[in-house]
Nucleic acid binder design. Structure first.
Lengths: 298, 298
DNA sequence: TAGATTGTTAATCGATTAACAATC
DNA sequence: TAGATTGTTAATCGATTAACAATC
């Protein structure tokens, strides 16, 4: 399983895609970068209410973070506040926008125009943040030619020419999981260097390409974990004595399980559900495996 | 801005919702919990290929993480491997499923059936992970009564009775941002204690309620930040000398800007784009502010 | 036994936060 | 000047990772 290309970072939570590189560009920590959009949103709201200045305490409350953290975050950008007064809202909006690169236009392609692709194409927050949908792409001839959000859905074959002619550097993948890596490869080959992946697939990309991932299933599972703890703790703790048995016993048990072809345990909900699906068990590249976008519009 | 309820955690990246509490239930770090679904997905794929055992090195590669990290993560669950051999795939699938609470059924309500709500309703990964869509809800009479993914869209008025009768503890919010807090309040009031929020809104919830957030706009902005650094570093660095000027000078400049009602800077792409939108500037609760789901099906 | 691989240690790194001097 | 609030320090906490003893 040797790899010459680095797999994308990890989950939603600790660090993501870009963390592959020195982790900070010009000394700004990843954790801070990830919060800048939050601050920007809160500041934009204040700006629209024509609020001239805001204190770190107020802004932190609006963004849902600790005020010391906010001040520390801002200190990486420079000294943009005024002691005793607070921060100038408009000025800070501009500084953060500039830091995030939002003062320029970012053409984006969306690949895979199912329900999710449609939802993203219609996403109002795109344009208002400097992002522009350069093209919608799909491999399905039944989808190509239709339109979404006023844009025509074009065929995957046009990907390379679109990326080149429109200088697209950001791609959004909303395909079924089986197609994600292949689409990713084509995007990267065409020159895209940042990818937002909605398919539940670990993408492998060359150095220099950033991948961020959005995964509904993972988010729900994390919620379920905590939810489980709330209701009376240790709910259906049907832990076998073997689970905590000394090594040799467990090893022997595992060997037996392997030989028997089963695990001697009640099946998980996931396993049970699987039978109800049309997915061919034991087939790689199967369906029904957590695809947020597997359902294409009819 | 005093608050009696805690605002949700922060961005996608550092920590999320549940991190409000002791951060670990039964000693499992949040970062580990967030990776368990990744491992589970990789293991499920191996299971379907009937692979009996897997080493930490192989599994880590498949999940896109460091193998030492994976072994450390698993050590929090117990000693489920066999030295010199690796991990029994089926056994580990079961153990992680159980740890995540996926051996039980989780009824979920989705509120806000726009494009995104539709996409989620059709999400195949729901059922295969123990999650079940208990109901689709919307406030718009034009949407209520239609169906999505074979389920009828019901009116918000039914929320409370559905949550109670079906013991729903997880709610997904895919409404426009202006409705999110209100919907959240109703969900919590009805008894929901875990919320997955797709609206670009900071939700305030009582203690004991977990909120996780998925925000396309934030993800794109983080990508843009890194993208900006790739292309020749310091691209349109139109930094005014005032930006780094000593305190008194900046303070005076800020005061002037406030008095003049402008910031004396080129406008951000966000600001420019705003004019093209129908949003009423200066109005709180405005539209066009990053709503992933503001577009309801016609 | 010899090779393989886990589980754990310990060092390192990065992020968070309270506290407060600087200064508006 | 007095009150307010930033920007920074330093302590603490949590996460990552290489290395390796334990043990299959």
């Amino acid at each position: 399983m040797a790899i010459g290309r680095s797999p994308q970072s990890s989950s939603q939570t600790p660090d993501q895609g870009a963390a592959r590189r020195p982790s900070r560009a010009r000394g700004i920590p990843e954790a801070t970068v990830a919060r800048l959009p939050l601050y920007l949103r809160a500041l934009t709201a204040l700006s629209e209410r024509s609020v001239p200045t805001v204190s770190s305490e107020e802004l932190a409350a609006a963004a849902g973070v600790n005020s010391a953290k906010l001040r520390k975050d801002f200190s990486y950008l420079g000294s943009y506040g005024t002691r005793g007064v607070g921060y100038d809202v408009e000025y800070l909006v501009y500084q953060i926008s500039r830091e995030l690169g939002l003062t320029q236009d970012w053409p984006v392609v969306i690949v895979g125009i199912g329900n999710l692709g449609h939802a993203l194409a219609n996403y109002g927050g795109f344009a208002s943040r400097g992002f522009r949908v350069a093209a919608l792409l799909d491999a399905d001839p039944a989808v190509v030619g239709s339109s979404a959000a006023g844009l025509p859905v074009r065929h995957m074959d046009e990907l390379e020419s679109i990326v080149e002619s429109q200088h697209v550097s950001i791609g959004v993948i909303t395909t079924p999981p089986g197609a994600a890596q292949q689409v990713c490869d084509r995007l990267v080959e065409a020159g895209v260097t940042s990818i937002l992946n909605f398919a539940p697939t670990v993408l492998t990309v060359p150095d220099g390409v950033d991948v961020r991932k959005v995964d509904l299933s993972i988010e729900l599972q994390i919620l379920a974990f905590h939810e489980q703890r709330k209701a009376g703790d240790e709910p259906d703790r049907t832990e076998s004595v073997l689970d905590r048995a000394p090594g040799p016993v467990r090893a022997a048990a595992a060997k037996l399980r392997r030989a028997a072809g089963g695990n001697g345990k009640p099946r998980t909900a996931a396993e049970s559900a699987k039978d109800a699906e049309p997915a061919a068990k034991g087939k790689p590249g199967k369906t029904g495996e957590g695809e947020l976008s597997a359902v294409m519009p009819a």
